[in-house]
Design a binder for these strands. Structure first.
Lengths: 143, 143
DNA sequence: GCCCTCATCTTGACTCATTCCAGAAAGCCG
DNA sequence: CGGCTTTCTGGAATGAGTCAAGATGAGGGC
């Protein structure tokens, strides 16, 4: 995982001020991949003592806009954030417990980016969500 | 578009009772592809006179569970519903105006269903969302 | 055709993630 | 170090979606 100073460089590189809440949120996102906002707030508070939820929401939005974190929103779930950016990876979501895991695409770095019929749209990103059952839920299935 | 009697048969086929709200919602979903809940409520009311939002929510959930309608939730948008089911198609979403259009997959009927590394998950569906700009927004772009 | 039963609809209140607002505090640059 | 600007705090508001209890009406049996 990146160090605090690495996070500082990331922030400065994005022309953002380096503040305690931002470092805490950035750290929390990297420590807890796919964490929801509430988890991030709690983790950030564990590291800083106290942070307003408003600050966390604001920081997450700023970081998302700067491309330092990625926002994912599976259907039926609250917004989640992850630190892995740059590489084009997708997600598997468990229908049973909601767990999320990263997957690389089978086709390449831009899978299915060429739709059969793009309806005149200018497509710049393809987001893929796989739905299934995680190993834990598959094992403990109650039949 | 299917007729009312066709919707009735669909409902009966799914072992669901045929009621006015259900026919109205089913019609609304087919008339307005990718409509959000609020739109569906208004369209259903235009046809029936008055329907509680609760009934619409309930009907949509039942129809989704029965596979008669499909629920889609692009990030940053409210839930939307469409009547096209059965065929495996995906969606393009305009980053600018939020417009949604259907696209068939370039690869086949189950694109990218084989992830490079499935993390032990049992994947049963791949949902693809293309992000881009619609023709209208591309044309009227303000430099 | 009539009645009974239970799924379904109505009404109304409520939850909870997220956003908005205004003021106070702190980081950055010179 | 001082000033300016951005960011953080705290509280309240918004709005999609959900929960609960009672009334209604669709379907099936007689």
């Amino acid at each position: 995982m990146p160090t605090t100073s690495a996070f500082e460089q990331s922030l400065r590189g994005a022309a953002l001020r380096v503040t305690q809440p931002r470092l805490a949120v950035l750290t929390a996102v990297h420590e807890h991949p796919h964490a929801d906002t509430d988890t991030i707030i709690r983790v950030a508070r564990a590291g800083l003592g106290d942070v307003s939820h408003q600050a966390v929401y604001d920081v997450l939005r700023v970081l998302t806009a700067a491309g330092l974190v990625r926002r994912i929103e599976p259907s039926g779930s609250v917004a989640r954030y992850e630190g892995r950016t740059g590489d084009n990876h997708h997600h598997v979501v468990c229908r049973s417990c909601g767990a999320i895991a990263d997957v690389d695409c089978a086709v390449g770095d831009t899978p299915c980016l060429t739709a059969a019929n793009d309806q005149g749209f200018t497509i710049d990103e393809a987001e893929v969500v796989y739905w299934g059952t995680c190993p834990t839920c598959s094992t403990t299935r109650s039949t």
